[in-house]
Design a protein around this nucleic acid. Structure first.
Lengths: 212, 212
DNA sequence: GTCTATACAGTGATAGAC
DNA sequence: GTCTATCACTGTATAGAC
């Protein structure tokens, strides 16, 4: 009984063992400061374990970094979906999808992830492809599916739906993501997101509406 | 005479004294590997001076880094210009401008600069604003000037020229820049750039051409 | 200003006891 | 598996001679 209590007290932060606690601490540290500015000492301290325990679970700093990045890529972008959209009202569907996209890629964690991946891709070439497959490529595919059904319903017409999906995403992203990446704006509010999405949808629909 | 010869031999790489040589070496090292992965030792070795000389000119690694970044931002983006364009042939003007834009931002040095700035902006907040003012903001202003004259000549019409300029740049950039940033493509060839610009101009003109 | 030599802190990683 | 203590090494930065 006393032992069980002791164990419960020991798993203060995370409920999934020490490996989870280490991953959580490493995630916070890496996303906040980058790879080079974080030490294994600080991660161990933050996770309330010794440095040797960190090395018992992850063979090196690089390995721990890779585990964190792969995990976060899957976690964040898995939530993006084009489901529950009405393909007949294409304007409303594009607006909802654009809003989901912007809310995701402008979230503080996604911005931090984007920063560290582009900053460290030279040292860890593999994380570029992991990020691309989990994020931008998956998003473009989802948009493309919606555009194809919109074309089938006759509302819009595309010579190249894949390219059109890419262009829609580019319009929605605009320059607002870059401003966030560069720390030029405090945070993107709901109003700002609404305005950006509406402008993008307007321009996109004008360009691709069926002509008589 | 012998002394002069000795001096000439000593300024092997750069013609502007040791500070220039140090800056050149630091630029190559930082752009290739990032801030954290570069040591002052390696910069001094590359510049053929001692480490103490580096510190005599730049008080710290951070100061040297800031000097390199500010310099390169100015150097690269200063070449972008919207001059010598015919505002009456708006399609041709947009194509030329889009090509200039893509050739600039997809150049290996610009990609490397973009990577390191977004990667280190958390540690050096000031470089975000330096980059923004020298690059994206200046480019958007140039595009906006062209769009206003195109609207005056009657070819296109814009409710918000500033927003339209932002959207044109977003369309031209597409996803090709991100693929370069993530090391997913070896390099952007002339053909790829031509295709990307043509698609962007097509969509943009369809969205903003004057309607009867 | 420039060099050689070095101080000093901090890093990633490991050995050995429990 | 986990800890304490320690290793070998590299990093930034500086002192002192010239």
């Amino acid at each position: 009984m006393a032992r069980a209590l002791g164990r419960i007290e020991h798993t203060e932060v995370s409920a999934g063992g020490k490996a989870e606690g280490i991953l959580a601490a490493a995630k916070r540290a890496f996303l906040a400061a980058g790879f080079g500015a974080v030490s294994m000492d600080s991660i161990a301290r933050e996770a309330s374990v010794s440095k040797a325990t960190v090395y018992a679970h992850f063979g090196s700093k690089e390995e721990l970094f890779g585990a964190v990045i792969g995990r976060e890529c899957e976690r964040y972008f898995a939530s993006f979906s084009a489901g529950e959209l009405d393909p007949r009202d294409v304007r409303a569907s594009l607006t909802v999808l654009g809003r989901r996209f912007l809310e995701l890629v402008l979230s503080p964690d996604a911005i931090a992830l984007h920063r560290i991946i582009t900053g460290e891709v030279t040292r860890f070439p593999v994380i570029g492809e992991i990020f691309w497959r989990a994020g931008p490529e998956r998003q473009r595919v989802q948009v493309e599916v919606l555009l194809r059904s919109a074309a089938a319903s006759g509302a819009l017409e595309f010579a190249d739906p894949r390219l059109a999906a890419e262009q829609f995403i580019s319009l929605v992203r605009g320059e607002i993501q870059l401003r966030q990446l560069l720390h030029l704006a405090p945070e993107a509010g709901q109003h700002e997101i609404s305005v950006a999405v509406r402008s993008a949808v307007d321009t996109f629909v004008r360009a691709f509406q069926r002509r008589p």
